Simulated assay, not measured.
Amino acid sequence: MSVVADRPDLDLDPHRLVDPEVHVHGDQYAIWHRMRRQTPVHRHPAGDLPAFWSLTRYADVRAVYRDPETFSSRHGVLLRPVALGEDPGGGMTLALTDPPRHKQLRAVVADWFTTRAVRSLTDRIEDCVRSVLDRAYEQGRCDFVHDVAGRLSMHVIGTIMGVPERDHDALFRWTNEAFEAGVSLAAHRELMAYFIDLMEQRIDDPTDDLVSMMAGGTLGDDLLTEEEIVLNCENIIGATENGRLAIAGGMQALLEHPEQWARLRADRDLLPTAIEEILRWTSSATHSMRTATRDCEIDGVPVAAGDRVVLWVPSANRDETVFDQPDRFDVGRTPNRHLALGIGEHVCIGGTLARAQLRILLTALLDTAGRIESAGPVQRVRSIAVAGPEHLPLLINPR
């Protein structure tokens, strides 16, 4: 990605960061580069979006993530237009709760995301990877985002949630419709009706799946309400967008840096560091928001109680004071203490699963793929919330 020195005529106004087009064209990296040096804690006035503070340095982003008492998630973790008000899931979902409620809610679902649980899913993930790659090889040309990354992510989370395999295609179609329209999954009537029905089935007849676990889960002495169950289903399904963007963005990075793909082919021991570098490089969650619960300071800048603070995660993951040559994609990078999956109380509960999917898919590609090359222009997601390719057309053939 370009930095300021490479693009002297670029408009580096920080306020451009709220324009999705800036993120489509990659200008945000140059803006963040300058902000890290000149205005790492920057105030944005209210407009269609509420007023907020931008944080662009690694140390500041990390410190806010690790201080949920001062920086709350309850009032929303993404910038929303003022006209929409606060996120209706506040206080009810994994993403939108603070300690101690967050820890209680996390405990309800955590068993499905442990290393042991993910290991037990390995065969199913491998089966899905074989299926999506066989289809891609048969076609010869595919949209890697839709045909491989998206199908893999949705199949795996659908399996965990107890969605019957016969319904995976419908779940995939509904979520695609919402993602491509840039609307909340909660606004998709068929999808939400499906999970309401699934929830009711599991309340009456629980099985061994995540929805059943939530249906029987308690916070203190109280069962989760039906609204909490459905909103958490939406929250967990919605997280698959980040997963597929990271997978597809990783494939794009390897294509654009063929010498790194060659390194990986020559040395499979690089897979663990390659996966961490893909997560750092793609940083598919573009921003995460918190709300200050008290008057405080960030880097000496006064922040008032009630102020919104936006953490630009990709900027933190390109911070020159932390990462050597941060604008270089390096599958052997170490150390690599990126923040792509968060840190602290809200570290991504699906991190182990995300890494497993990447490892299994990359291994299968290394084992079976011959030619992989671009089959057309890449289209990036038009968003300030998530980042990555929306369409990645490839020519892909088996060995």
Rank of each mutant, 00 (worst) to 15 (best):
A340G: 12
G344E: 04
V331T: 15
P314F: 02
E320S: 10
R333A: 04
L339I: 04
D319K: 05
D330I: 07
R318A: 10
E345T: 05
S315A: 13
W312L: 11
L341V: 13
T321N: 07
T334S: 15
A340R: 06
N336A: 13
D327Y: 09
D324H: 15
L341T: 15
N336W: 08
E345W: 00
P314T: 10
N336S: 12
H346M: 00
T334I: 15
L339G: 02
T321M: 06
R318Q: 13
D327I: 02
G344Y: 01
R337D: 14
W312Q: 05
H338W: 09
G344P: 03
R318C: 05
V347T: 05
L339K: 10
R328W: 06
N317L: 06
P326D: 11
D327V: 05
V347F: 05
R328I: 13
F323N: 08
D327M: 07
A316Y: 02
D330K: 04
L341N: 13
F329R: 03
I343M: 08
D324Y: 11
V331H: 09
R333E: 03
T321R: 07
F329A: 01
L339V: 11
H346V: 02
Q325T: 14
R318S: 10
L341Y: 09
R337H: 13
G342Q: 01
H346T: 03
T334L: 11
P335V: 14
W312P: 07
H346S: 02
I343S: 06
I343P: 04
Q325H: 11
A340D: 09
V347P: 00
P314Y: 04
R337I: 13
G342V: 00
V347I: 08
T334E: 14
E345H: 01
W312F: 12
R328V: 14
G342I: 00
D327S: 12
E320G: 07
G344F: 04
P326V: 09
N336K: 12
V313F: 08
G342E: 02
P335M: 13
V331D: 12
D324P: 11
A340W: 04
W312I: 07
P335S: 13
D327T: 14
Q325W: 03
D330P: 08
E320H: 07
L341G: 06
N336T: 15
V322R: 12
G342H: 00
D327F: 04
R333Y: 01
G344I: 05
V347W: 01
E320A: 14
A340V: 07
P326Y: 04
P335L: 13
H346P: 01
G344H: 03
F323R: 09
R318Y: 08
R328F: 08
P335G: 14
L339E: 09
V331L: 10
H346D: 03
D324S: 14
G332A: 15
V347H: 05
P335I: 11
A340S: 15
E345K: 00
L341D: 07
D330H: 06
G332D: 15
P335R: 11
G344W: 02
V322Q: 09
H338L: 10
P314E: 06
D324W: 11
F323E: 08
F329I: 02
E320L: 06
N317Y: 08
Q325E: 15
V322T: 12
R318H: 11
N317C: 07
N317Q: 11
G342C: 02
E320M: 08
E345M: 00
R337P: 14
G342D: 03
D324C: 11
R328L: 09
D324G: 09
I343D: 13
L341W: 12
